[in-house]
């Protein structure tokens, strides 16, 4: 990628530009098929969720860690840092303010990474469809792998969603990170359209 294709990073002051990495995300080609399949199996069996409760749906995630639902038995666990997580859960409506944090956290996760949305708000705005401050379609801002609908989806449906996600990962259908890297400019333009005070680097690492 030549330097003129790089985004201008104009959300940052000159001093701040020194502090952030300017490299764009890149498309990473998969490993040879058998290895990739094996890795996909491992990825599907070890889902690290970023513990970032965006919106009301986060409350429905908590029961998953309890004895009643116990997501650990499916190889799903919470991680406190995006660096180590592989699954991002948009838990319900996303306001503009939250979206900014969602974007930064998502970009800080290391690929391959998967996005799950809960509830109807991330799909079409749900009951906040005409709000001045709630986005309607999250898939214009992030590549979504699976959406679990309902207002809110019960823990059982979330588990069902995860099972579905695992199937998709094993099938090699979840390549959101590469999708994001490929269509980076489009996603970024959409994000910047609503986050007017950007104040972040264009490439969050």
């Amino acid at each position: 990628m030549s330097s003129k294709d790089l985004l201008p990073n104009d959300g940052l002051s000159e001093i701040d530009q020194e502090f952030f990495c300017q490299a764009p995300p890149e498309y990473i080609s998969p490993l040879p098929k058998p290895i990739e399949d094996f890795m996909n199996w491992a990825r599907s069996e070890s889902l690290f969720i970023l513990a970032f409760g965006t919106g009301c749906g986060a409350i429905e995630l908590r029961p998953l860690t309890t004895s009643r639902f116990d997501m650990y038995q499916y190889g799903i666990q919470m991680r406190a840092t995006p660096r180590q997580s592989s699954v991002f859960i948009v838990g319900g409506y996303a306001s503009v303010k939250t979206l900014k944090r969602i974007v930064r956290s998502y970009e800080q996760m290391q690929g391959p990474k998967f996005v799950v949305t809960l509830g109807s708000c991330p799909i079409n705005g749900g009951m906040y469809w005409d709000s001045y401050n709630t986005i309607n379609r999250i898939d214009h801002y992030l590549p979504i792998d699976i959406s679990i609908c309902g207002c809110m989806p019960r823990p059982e449906s979330i588990l069902a969603g995860f099972v579905e996600l695992k199937k998709m990962i094993r099938a090699g259908q979840c390549d959101g990170a590469n999708l994001y890297a490929k269509n980076f400019a489009w996603y970024k333009a959409n994000q910047k359209r609503i986050i007017k005070d950007w104040n972040m680097p264009d490439y969050n690492w």
Partner: peptide, 14 residues
């Protein structure tokens, strides 16, 4: 990817 000093996890913030 070699990154710089502010490219850290900062609870979604910078």
């Amino acid at each position: 990817q070699k990154v710089k000093q502010f490219n850290i996890v900062f609870a979604g913030e910078r």
